[in-house]
Design a protein around this nucleic acid. Structure first.
Length: 466
RNA sequence: GGCGACGUGGCCGAGUGGUUAGGCACAGCUCUGCAAAAGCUGCUACACCGGUUCGAUUCCGGUCGUCGCCUCCA
């Protein structure tokens, strides 16, 4: 039985999909205006893990993550750079998807882009206008917030308190400052589409209402995203969708905590950012993924180099363990049970990892005593697989050059990166046999300098990339 | 000001009304040509003040502090 914390209602509750054995999941994706930062990675990883877990548990998950490819920020940024909005969006989309993959995030089943769903959005807006829940004003269309019962139920706000803070842009004719745009009339030179209200483009919130309904149907099971989207984005999605259908929209709302730097949230608009691609380049995808999974997905986490080093140390421990012996037999049942119990408690990956490390210690202790640890290793492999933590890849990308240099220095044949590593390790083993300690140590030190760690053991040398 | 979350040992970070989270770091020992890895041992906590209770880090109230949202944001 899975328990989840539902932002809607702020309660823990049993997760029961609408249809037995099937789960529909919609994750709010990025606005592709600039490159991804660690916070985007956290969101992607958090819900990728949930998807993987549900899948592993035997459920059929339909996973949708959108791309917002039209928006004021994109228009402005493209103008600054002197490129088209399409080109900018396409390039940034690619960068997001590449970084996500390097974090071990599986591709969504559907990755809908807003600009490919304009007709669906127009239809939805037209329906809201017909029902009196929206109105055209100038070339814009606004949602009439006060016309909808229950607005604010997700974020715990009430309309009378909101009134004071609501943003009113000059020159815009809203009936009420709380009302938000469903459709924005185009200014000259802006990308636009024809609509019953004139040329224009969709507001931000409407895309998620339209696309989630299209791919998952309404209502659907899980709607997820960053905690900073609770208000107004998700609140407005609910207003639009429930206004349009008269019934419930998404059943479980899951929100990941923010990634902070120096105690403050990362934010594109302020430039307070840890670039995701750079971090991946520096530490590798698996280290970052482990860093992200060490805390529960709802807690805020602090990015720091010290934390990344910790995460690398932890990853090394896992890798060293599974390299000691092959998996054998079915995965250890006790280890799996602990993993399942942790995950079913609101997908508590931090606790799940605690159980993994205890399994590692048990396994190491058994191996030290000359015993068998096949099932324990199998369990660790199984669990890290579900968590999407890659313990396997040698990851020798980018090392061809330094390895070739070392191959030349120690007079072994050049070739593929992996081949050179093997030959260098063999050369060191030979040096050790002839008790040429200085040569053996030099090879080990130089390899370490290149990022390849060599460890001796009873049954030969093992190596892995740091 | 309103709404929400949170304050755990050197650091990161789970969890619980009375029993070891875990990782990283540190010290000692074992093992090892050296090292690393690994094992064992050690170090050690629940912001503060009240209350409930036989007993609270864990429930309730208050204080202080931090963070998020209230405007675009994963």
């Amino acid at each position: 039985m899975i328990t989840v914390y539902n932002t809607l209602g702020r309660v823990r509750q049993t997760f029961e999909p609408l249809e037995e054995g099937r789960v529909g999941m919609y994750v709010c994706g990025p606005t592709v205006q600039s490159a991804p930062h660690i916070g985007h990675g956290r969101c992607a990883v958090a819900f990728d893990v949930i998807r993987r877990y549900l899948t592993w548990r035997g459920w059929d998950v339909l996973y949708v993550q959108n791309i917002t490819d039209v928006d004021d920020k994109i228009i402005n940024r493209a103008a600054e750079l002197g490129v088209t909005t399409e080109d900018l969006a396409a390039e940034m989309t690619e960068r997001f998807l590449t970084s996500y993959r390097r974090l071990g995030v599986l591709d969504p089943d559907v990755t809908p882009a807003a600009t490919h769903h304009i007709p669906e959005m127009i239809e939805l807006i037209a329906g809201l206008v017909r029902q009196g829940l929206a109105y055209a004003s100038g070339g814009d269309v606004y949602f009439r917030v006060r016309a909808l019962e229950g607005y604010g139920k997700l974020s715990g706000r009430n309309v009378d308190e909101l009134r004071i803070g609501a943003r009113v842009e000059p020159g815009i004719d809203k009936e009420d400052p709380l009302d938000f745009a469903l459709w924005k009339g185009a200014k000259p030179g802006e990308p636009s589409w024809p609509s019953p209200w004139g040329e224009g483009r969709p507001g931000w919130h409407i895309e998620c209402s339209a696309m989630s309904a299209k791919y998952l149907g309404v209502p659907f099971d899980i709607h997820a995203g960053g905690a900073d989207l609770i208000f107004p984005h998700h609140e407005n999605e609910i207003a639009q969708s429930e206004g349009a259908t008269g019934g419930p929209f998404a059943r479980y709302w899951l929100h990941n905590g923010m990634v902070n730097l120096g105690g403050e949230k990362l934010s594109k608009s302020t430039g307070h950012i840890v670039d995701l691609a750079e971090a991946i380049e520096t530490y590798g995808g698996p280290v970052i993924r482990l860093f992200l999974l060490r805390a529960a997905y709802r807690s805020p986490i602090e990015y720091s180099e010290a934390s990344m080093r910790d995460a690398r140390g932890s990853l090394d421990r896992l890798r060293s363990f599974v390299r000691r012996a092959p998996s054998a037999g079915p995965p250890d049942a006790a280890a799996l049970d602990r993993f399942v119990a942790s995950m079913e408690d609101d997908f508590n990956t931090a606790e799940a990892l605690g159980a993994v490390f205890e399994t590692v210690r048990q396994g190491n202790a058994r191996l030290d005593r000359g015993g068998e640890a096949g099932p324990l290793i199998a369990a660790v492999r199984e669990i890290t697989g579900v968590l999407g933590i890659d313990l396997e890849s040698a990851g020798l990308e980018g090392l061809a050059e330094p390895l070739a240099e070392l191959a030349a220095r120690y007079e072994v044949a050049a070739g593929s990166a992996e081949g050179m590593v093997r030959r260098l390790v063999a050369a060191r083993t030979a040096a050790r046999r002839s008790r040429d300690w200085s040569r053996a140590d030099a090879i080990r030190d130089d390899m370490a300098g290149a990022g390849i760690v060599i460890e001796d053991s009873a049954d030969g040398a093992r190596w892995y990339r740091r």
